[in-house]
């Protein structure tokens, strides 16, 4: 088991290098560079080409693309994350400030969608064909097909502005930083972010559960005189759970991608919001670090999913 984890972690390194290179290449191919965003247009018209070039040199932008990538990747390997081109703040400090907010939001959404999705999917499967099942199916289709930012705007309009139940946005009010003070801020973004995932998990849990319930061992369990709840939950749901967990693992990037948008909608001070402005200003070091972090998060999450399935399903043996 431990060697398996170690091996999986080692395979992360080449993957991270390849993926980060592709992102770097993508940034290189976009028109303009950091300097064209740092210097305001009116100031730029007064600067001559030599001063602009000097500025580029000072930022290290003059070197060829491959060399810059090499400098960056070797730096990261040594724990040198660099500075944001906009403002010169150390990237490690940006991460330290912003990451907790993003993690809080994503984790809350993950928790909501996993629990709610599995429960609703199971109910849907157990009441197959009934009104409950059909309405859950319709709600699920709406959930996967309507974009999250739309839900976000509607939620702000209804629950924040009209009903005044939750704050419009933000994460912390100055002076109120206990968990209970922050909770109302978290509710709406987390719920909205989880909608799509909840709907997906629900649909998947339903079909997985129906599949499990049609298997022979369910009949065996009934023939043993087990009560219905035990047949459905202990024998049915437990077997249905493995594919659902795998699905959740695969859908994690959706959550990370969604959080970028949701953080904008709710003015949530997380990495996602930072990422959008960094891409806009072609702030290479920051974009690269955020991208790297997201990639790592997804890869590590998939490792955790593998480990979880091995624990849940005894037929899965790791490492051989």
């Amino acid at each position: 088991m431990l060697t398996y984890i170690a091996r999986r972690l080692l395979t992360l390194i080449p993957m991270v290098i390849v993926i980060s290179f592709l992102i770097y290449l993508g940034l290189e191919l976009t028109p303009g560079d950091a300097v064209s965003h740092m210097v305001p247009p009116d100031a730029r018209s007064m600067m001559d080409e030599e001063r602009l070039q000097a500025l580029r040199e000072s930022l290290g932008l003059g070197k060829p693309f491959i060399v810059r990538y090499w400098i960056w990747i070797t730096g990261v390997m040594q724990g040198e994350f660099g500075y944001s081109l906009a403002g010169g703040v150390p990237i490690s400090k940006i991460f330290l400030d912003r990451l907790p907010a993003t993690l809080e939001l994503s984790f809350a959404a993950l928790l909501i969608s996993t629990v709610l999705g599995s429960i609703l999917g199971t109910i849907s499967a157990l009441t197959r064909g009934s009104l409950t099942d059909q309405s859950l199916t319709v709600v699920g289709m709406l959930g996967v097909s309507i974009p999250e930012f739309f839900f976000g705007l509607v939620a702000i309009l209804v629950f924040a502005l009209n009903l005044n139940w939750f704050p419009v946005g933000g994460r912390i009010l100055p002076g109120y930083d206990s968990f209970w003070d922050r909770l109302p801020h978290l509710v709406m973004p987390a719920m909205v972010l989880s909608i799509m995932m909840t709907a997906g998990v629900m649909r998947y849990a339903r079909s997985s559960m129906l599949d499990a319930l049609s298997r022979d061992f369910i009949r065996t369990a009934r023939s043993k005189g087990m009560p219905e709840w035990r047949v459905n939950i202990l024998h049915g749901f437990r077997v249905a759970l493995t594919p659902v967990i795998v699905l959740i693992g695969f859908r994690l990037p959706v959550l990370i991608g969604g959080s970028v948008i949701i953080e904008q909608v709710f003015q949530w001070p997380g990495i996602g919001k930072e990422f959008v402005s960094a891409v806009r200003s072609q702030d290479y070091p920051l974009v690269m670090m955020v991208a790297l972090f997201s990639v790592l998060a997804v890869l590590i999450a998939s490792l955790i999913v593998d480990l979880l399935t091995a624990i849940i399903d005894p037929r899965v043996r790791l490492g051989e």
């Binding site: 061992f217 437990r238 077997v239 849940i312 399903d313």
Partner: peptide, 9 residues
């Protein structure tokens, strides 16, 4: 093969 639940001993 199928009458026993695969995830329980």
């Amino acid at each position: 093969m199928t009458a026993l639940n695969p995830v329980y001993s």
